[in-house]
């Protein structure tokens, strides 16, 4: 019997040093029955995309606090395209201004969770966006 398990990569790109938020989300998704792959701090877009391919995840969640979000999301989405892997969804969380959210969505980022979003909401939205495709 085919058992489809959702696999999510939670990654922390950029140079800022803490991953509390990323870990909270990772645990919440695990508790919701998903397989969560966690990569550690300070990942480059290249290493994140490479991990996503090897782990064949359904989605990549990026936790970004550094302000470099426009660049990082753009780069990751470009790399996914290059690897013929646009079907891997990208979402993110962090301190990201409203006007950038519109821009990021135009790049293809599925969802941005602002600080304070409940983990329940994140779980529901992640499931929903994956099941839509």
């Amino acid at each position: 019997m085919p058992e489809k398990k959702l696999r999510i990569l939670i990654a922390k790109p950029g140079l800022d040093g803490h991953d509390r938020g990323a870990k909270v989300v990772a645990r919440a998704l695990r508790d919701a029955g998903m397989e969560v792959i966690y990569t550690g701090l300070r990942q480059t877009p290249e290493s994140i995309v490479e991990t996503a391919l090897q782990e064949d995840v359904d989605a990549i969640g990026l936790s970004i606090l550094s302000g470099a979000h426009n660049y990082l999301f753009q780069k990751i989405i470009d790399l996914l395209k290059k690897e013929d892997a646009e079907d891997i969804l990208v979402f993110g969380g962090g301190i990201i201004p409203e006007e950038d959210i519109t821009y990021l969505k135009s790049l293809g980022v599925k969802k941005i969770f602002r600080p304070g979003t409940s983990t329940e909401k994140i779980i529901t939205d992640v499931k929903e966006m994956i099941h839509k495709i």
Binding site: K5, A26, R27, L29, R30, D31, A32, G33, M34, E35, V36, I37, Y38, T39, G40, S47, T51
Partner: peptide, 13 residues
């Protein structure tokens, strides 16, 4: 829960 947190690869960064 049926879920898992898979972090072994952190050591292989």
């Amino acid at each position: 829960t049926g879920g898992a947190l898979l972090g072994d690869r952190i050591r292989m960064q």
